[in-house]
């Protein structure tokens, strides 16, 4: 469980080049362990999706990876840096090792191709030796995996509901039995009931197939329920990392605290919802020091001047927890 699957080291992603560039992801270190669900939460514009696109090298122009490493540890063989792969190696790596379920459930499927075509072309690209019948059989299996009847293979995307389409995407993501599935707000476009269904299904599938998940969302309440560990992003940096339960019980960073308290709890005593005053920082002119200090109720002297390092907080014996806040300076 504690074996490392994917290691992000000092990743920096910019949009644009030179003076005008915007630093969307700054010095991010993040580790995904084998078989876990790692939640990545933050407001819009915090850089969470950019991080996901960056580590799979899918950044649309003008996105540029300015530095860092994304080290993938295969089950057998030497770890390698994804950012250093050639185009051919990258194509072989994509989907076979890391697949992605994207934000737009509605637009992730090409409207002019049948579901079967879109499920089988990825099999054909990665397993050129397979027969057509074998690929179709696999496509049927994948649909069964996500609870969609096999006769839907001949449907076009517009004939499916939003929830079905996203389930097809999840099935597609599992086509090559990847080790990592990145979910970029996979259920944002769906209603709450369907959200639950799909996430429940996902958890079941993960237990059966044993892949690890990087789950990106702005909905922290979902993460608390479905993930093992949670990383909170703000202004392109990771500000807190902890186990889901630990974060829920006791969040250290004022921003995580604010995020957690902007959702009503379903159970437990009534609480006042506080939310976070102000709006996310403009990435073009970031505040000095800690990016959160203008909105932070506890900001004090060092916050304005120096950027806090992400590290294990002093005086907290529990392992596996790090925070970047001057209230809890790193030991």
């Amino acid at each position: 469980m504690s074996e490392i699957e994917l290691e992000i080291k000092g990743l920096n992603v910019d949009y644009g080049l030179g003076e005008q560039s915007v630093h969307a992801v700054r010095d991010v270190d993040l580790t995904l362990r084998r078989g876990e669900v790692l939640g990545l939460a933050g407001e819009s514009g915090s850089g969470k999706s950019t991080l996901a696109y960056g580590l799979t090298r899918l950044l649309p122009p003008p996105g540029v990876i300015r530095g860092g490493q994304v080290i993938y540890h295969p089950e057998q063989g030497e770890p390698f840096d994804v950012l250093g792969l050639s185009d051919r190696q990258l194509r072989a790596f994509r989907w076979a090792q890391t697949s992605i379920v994207f934000q737009g459930a509605m637009n992730s499927l090409n409207p002019v191709h049948k579901i079967s075509t879109q499920l089988t072309d990825v099999l054909r690209a990665h397993e050129p030796g397979s027969t057509r019948a074998a690929r179709l059989a696999r496509a049927r299996e994948l649909l069964a995996l996500v609870g969609i009847p096999a006769d839907r293979l001949d449907s076009y995307p517009h004939q499916l509901s939003g929830g079905m389409r996203q389930r097809v995407m999840i099935g597609m993501a599992l086509a090559l039995r990847p080790k990592i599935v990145i979910m970029d707000e996979p259920t944002t476009a769906l209603d709450v009931v369907v959200q639950r269904q799909i996430l429940g299904q996902l958890v079941g599938l993960r237990e059966r197939l044993g892949f690890s998940v990087l789950f990106i969302t702005h909905d922290l309440s979902l993460l608390v329920e479905f993930s093992d560990r949670i990383a909170i992003m703000y202004g392109g940096r990771i500000v807190e990392q902890a186990s889901a339960a630990g974060l829920h019980k006791d969040s250290l960073h004022p921003y995580s605290h604010g995020l957690l308290h902007s959702f009503p709890a379903l159970r437990g005593p009534r609480e006042e919802l506080s939310g976070i005053p102000g709006s996310p920082p403009d990435l073009r002119s970031m505040p000095t020091g800690c990016a959160f200090h203008p909105r932070c109720p506890h900001s004090f002297d060092p916050c304005v001047r120096r950027v806090p390092e992400l590290g294990a907080p002093q005086g907290r014996p529990e392992q596996d927890r790090s925070v970047a806040c001057w209230l809890h300076p790193a030991s």
């Binding site: 185009d87 992730s108 499927l109 072309d121 990825v122 690209a125």
Partner: peptide, 18 residues
């Protein structure tokens, strides 16, 4: 080319031509 399904196609590791 900016549509999501094109990004998905890239992410699937399909050849550039395809």
């Amino acid at each position: 080319a900016a549509e999501d399904y094109v990004t998905v196609a890239h992410a699937k590791g399909l050849s550039e031509r395809r």
